[in-house]
């Protein structure tokens, strides 16, 4: 009765203002440079049984942008000069270099202050500015482990106490903390939330619950960002055999939902010495609307083309 834990892809959602700002920066600033452009994206917990995408807006280019109740994710845009070079773009390498950056942040301990650093994204794109068409492909790379995580149990719903404790902790973190630790809750002890870096100080490790701000709306499948946590932290760093993850979803008013939050118990296969380090492959290039692996495109002539805008304003 073992079943691999499956993860729901984090869909990308660049909006019009994102492309407009990118087009403007390309014309005035980047010109022909294909150097990666640092950006930030945001996602939130799934709300109202509706998965949250990774949202990219014009504010994505302002790296200090943070929102209450939205998880920040750092990433980069690779803006290529030709459609042709999108075809030859080394996606594998780009995915792996994200994983390396995450690995560095785990190694240096930077992830402890901002567990959002466990995930990054890359947008490779080509902007056809004559046609106001943008071709793009987004990747949120995750490590493909040698053996899958095993879903042991899935319990729907969570108590009001734990949801309240989690919300109180989360709302002060400015979206830099998608993961934290929840202790207590047994008998008379109230639930207590603490930073993810304090795992070693927890007395009863087997009772620790990891809280996760979950963008997935699927009960049995947590959102994509959990995947790197399980590999980098639970498996590699903690060497845990089993972890309990409380996947927090939102309800109206942005609080965590007692009905749609889900507690997963996951068996984490440790990376054996032989596999360690050499099995790393990055997965996470987004499926397009057809369900295949491939870029998407968006045509914004009607909104960005000055000629069309002028005629629409008549």
């Amino acid at each position: 009765m073992t079943e691999s834990l499956r993860f729901l892809e984090l869909a990308s959602a660049p909006d019009v203002s994102f492309w407009a700002r990118l087009a403007e920066l390309k014309l005035n600033e980047y010109k022909l440079s294909e150097d990666p452009i640092p950006v930030v994206g945001h996602y939130r917990a799934s709300a109202n049984n509706f998965a949250s995408p990774l949202i990219l807006t014009s504010a994505s280019f302002d790296l200090e942008t943070t929102y209450e109740n939205q998880i920040r994710m750092e990433g980069e845009v690779v803006l290529l000069n030709t459609l042709e070079s999108m075809k030859t773009f080394e996606r594998k390498k780009a995915g792996l270099s994200c994983i390396e950056r995450i690995d560095e942040d785990v190694g240096s301990g930077a992830w402890v202050e901002a567990s959002s650093k466990l995930n990054r994204f890359v947008v490779v794109c080509f902007a056809d500015l004559k046609q106001y068409t943008f071709y793009y492909w987004v990747c949120v790379p995750a490590v493909k482990a040698a053996s899958p995580m095993i879903s042991k149990t899935v319990e729907e719903g969570a108590g009001q106490d734990v949801c309240t404790a989690c919300y109180e902790y989360y709302k002060g973190t400015k979206g830099r903390t998608p993961f934290w630790i929840v202790e207590g809750g047994g008998g008379d002890t109230p639930f207590r939330c603490r930073g993810i870096g304090e795992y070693d100080r927890c007395e009863k490790k087997e009772e620790v619950i990891v809280a996760f701000v979950d963008p997935s709306d699927a009960t049995g499948s947590p959102g994509w960002p959990l995947r790197n946590f399980l590999w980098f932290v639970a498996s590699s760093l903690w060497g845990a055999k089993t972890v309990r993850v409380l996947c927090l979803k939102e309800e109206k008013l942005g609080r965590f939902s007692t009905t749609s939050s889900v507690l997963h118990t996951v068996d984490v296969p440790p990376e054996s010495g032989e596999d360690k380090g050499k099995t790393i492959a990055a997965v996470g290039w987004e499926h397009n609307a057809k369900g295949g692996l491939g870029p998407r495109s968006v045509n914004l002539a009607s909104t960005l083309d000055p000629k069309q805008r002028a005629s629409a304003a008549m």
Partner: peptide, 23 residues
């Protein structure tokens, strides 16, 4: 529409990924 049929893709054989559309 540019022909992107010749996009070269290595199918990521990753059985634990759920594509929201097929899910």
């Amino acid at each position: 529409i540019p022909d992107m049929e010749d996009f070269v893709v290595e199918e990521e054989d990753d059985t634990v990924t759920i594509n929201p559309r097929t899910a």
